[in-house]
Structure formats: structure tokens, C-alpha cells
């Protein structure tokens, strides 16, 4: 589904990603862990199509096509979803209207008829249950004045609405209390299937108790320096990142 080969990317002349290799297949959950500043968020930003990063070399194939030929909206329509670490507030645009526009533009892209207001509401009510989000919240301006937990739940709600093939959860656990974390994780697990895949970017192992990964990668200094199974996450939790840093001090 996703093939990243020797990806190098920089921002304002500073190289952040220094040769990333990663392959994600349908049905898999990959966790990408690493200390602050290792390039985790840059990787998700580059995959989602943020324009301020420049891709210096390497390739990324998503569902068979070169991802860099696609605009951010085209990537989303093809089935890529980024759950933002810091969801953006948009005054004056309600989550409901925003989602209706998004769902219908994606459906149009996929050759499906648009949903009318009634059909859309029905789907929305169904998906709201997955993350236990209130309809009143969805009528309000997008993320404006939402609590941290509400914003993250709204991200997973959007994921449920858009039915992506590949979801990237960028530090979705940051700032969540344990109850909110469980709701979010439960939402993600409900949406898991043999056809879609998930990349969980996180600093801590905690989230991985609830979203169990098939693979754990350690990102350090712009490269994946270690790959293992969920046990690697426990090891990182216990020993911290210093031993990784020590092992790769000269990278």
C-alpha cells in the first residue's frame, strides 16, 4: 500500500529526513516511535503533502502511484488520512458542513453519487457512535473552543467518515487522559480491517497497549534505526531513548 524508499526531505535548507525506508501492507499497523526532533512529524507532513517541506530525493508510492504527483486533496481522495497532532480551528465552518463537503468531493472522485443532506446525516449519526462524539459539537465551528480530547475525537470521527485506506495518526495520544485515549483507540480499532492500514506516530508506548502494532520502528535523526515488534515499544518505555542515541551517536 505504501512504499517509502530512501526518502530525504528538508525544510528551509535543513535536512530532517535522511533516508527513510518503510513498507506498509494492507491490514497492518505500524508504530513509529522516536525522541523529540527525530523527524516523526516531518514524515507525516511530507506524506500528507505539506508544501513547506521540500523532498530532496527518494520515492513514495501510495497504492501504486507516485505520491508526489498528487496534491494534498488528491492524496486524501485516494485514501490517505492524517490525524493532525494539532487539529486546526476554523471559525465559521461547522464540522458538519466541512465533512459534507469532504465526503462528497471524495465520493465524486471515486465515481459515487453525492450524499444528500438526509443520507449524510444518517451516515454521520452512525459514525458519531464510534468515538462517542456529540452532534451539538459537530454543529459548532470546527475545533473552535474544543478541548484537547474533543479535538482528537473529532479527528477520529473524520477518519470514520472518510473511510481511508491508510491512516497516519500523528501523536494522537498527546495530551489525552486515559479515558479519552481509550475512546480514541477504540475508534481506531473499530475502523481496522484487512483492507486498510494504520501508521501510529507516538512518543510513548501507552497508546500501543490499546492499538496493538504489528511493527514498531524507531526513528532517530531522520532515519529508521531499528525495527521490531511490540516488545520493542516496551523496551523503549523502560529504557528510554538514550541507548538508541548512544548506539547511533555517529549517524
Amino acid at each position: 500500500m505504501l512504499k517509502v524508499k530512501n526518502l530525504k526531505a528538508s525544510i528551509e535548507g535543513k535536512e530532517i529526513l535522511k533516508g527513510i525506508n518503510l513498507e506498509v501492507k494492507p491490514g497492518e499497523v505500524h508504530a513509529i516511535m522516536g525522541p523529540n526532533g527525530s523527524g516523526k512529524s516531518t514524515l507525516s507532513a511530507v506524506l500528507a503533502g505539506r508544501e513547506e517541506y521540500s523532498v530532496d530525493s527518494g520515492t513514495v508510492e501510495f497504492l501504486g502511484s507516485d505520491i508526489f504527483d498528487l496534491s494534498p486533496e488528491e492524496r486524501a481522495r485516494e485514501g490517505l488520512f492524517l490525524a493532525f497532532q494539532y487539529p486546526i480551528e476554523i471559525p465559521g465552518v461547522s464540522t458538519t458542513n466541512f465533512m459534507r463537503a469532504a465526503v462528497n468531493q471524495i465520493r465524486e472522485h471515486r465515481g459515487l453519487p453525492k450524499l444528500d443532506a438526509v443520507q449524510f446525516l444518517k451516515v454521520m449519526k452512525e459514525r458519531m457512535k464510534i468515538v462517542d462524539i456529540d452532534q451539538a459539537l459537530l454543529k459548532r465551528s470546527l475545533n473552535e473552543g474544543f478541548s484537547g480530547g474533543e479535538k482528537k475525537r473529532n479527528e477520529i470521527f473524520q477518519m470514520a467518515m472518510l473511510e481511508p485506506k491508510l491512516s497516519i495518526l500523528d501523536e494522537t495520544d498527546s495530551g489525552l487522559d486515559i479515558d479519552a485515549l481509550k475512546i480514541v483507540a477504540n475508534g481506531v480499532n473499530t475502523l481496522r480491517s484487512a483492507d486498510n492500514a494504520t501508521i501510529v506516530i507516538t512518543h510513548y508506548q501507552r497508546l500501543l497497549d490499546f492499538i496493538v502494532p504489528d511493527f514498531v520502528h524507531v526513528l532517530y535523526n531522520g532515519q529508521i534505526v531499528k525495527t521490531g515488534t511490540k516488545e520493542l515499544a516496551y523496551e523503549l518505555e523502560e529504557r528510554g531513548y538514550d541507548w538508541i542515541k548512544a548506539e547511533h551517536a555517529n549517524v
Binding site: 496534491s71 494534498p72 486524501a76 493532525f84 465552518v93 466541512f98 463537503a101 469532504a102 472518510l162
Partner: peptide
């Protein structure tokens, strides 16, 4: 730019994302 990217990252085309933001802005 952040707002624009957020809308586009959900599959909304650049032109309609701009219209959506301007509409919300003027609607106040």
C-alpha cells in the same frame, strides 16, 4: 495556510477550500 491545508488534507479541492474559508470569514 494552516486552515487551507487542513481542508485540503480532507479531500476538499483548493478552490472550494478557499471559498469555504472566505465565506466563513465574510459571514461573521
Amino acid at each position: 495556510k494552516e486552515q487551507l491545508f487542513y481542508l485540503r488534507a480532507r479531500g476538499i479541492g483548493e478552490h472550494s477550500a478557499k471559498l469555504m474559508l472566505l465565506d466563513a470569514y465574510a459571514n461573521e
